[in-house]
Amino acid sequence: MAELLKKDQMKPGAVAEGGTMAGLYTGSWRTYCPVTDFEKCTHCMLCWIVCPDSAVRVEGGKKLGTDYQYCKGCGICAVECPADAIEMKLESDLSEQRKEGEQP
């Protein structure tokens, strides 16, 4: 484990080290799970913009899916999606395979 900064090495009021949330897996908080229908998805990236947890996976301008390690299931993406391509499904009704089924 890397050595932690000491008090006087830290900038007052600012973040000590970047990525403070990276080690905190909030996916287990989820009750409802966003599942993207890639038949409808236009890759407009609105879900990527509005996601408060940066849990929308994107590569080369295309949405790849949701990072379920961090997605808390807030549902903002589903409400904002202009193509109506994201559905919130009850977590307990989903198998891991069905979730992964959203990948394009």
């Binding site: 932690l4 008090k7 830290m10 007052p12 009021g13 973040v15 000590a16 970047g18």
Partner: peptide, 30 residues
């Protein structure tokens, strides 16, 4: 070190858990 200085971007008031919170508080006390 302000939010609008894009050359030296900073984040303020972000998450600090058991590993850093206490040092920030000691800075305030100092």
């Amino acid at each position: 070190d302000n939010l609008l200085n894009v050359d030296h971007a900073e984040t303020f008031g972000a998450f600090a858990l058991q590993n850093y919170y206490f040092e920030f508080k000691k800075q305030q006390a100092d």
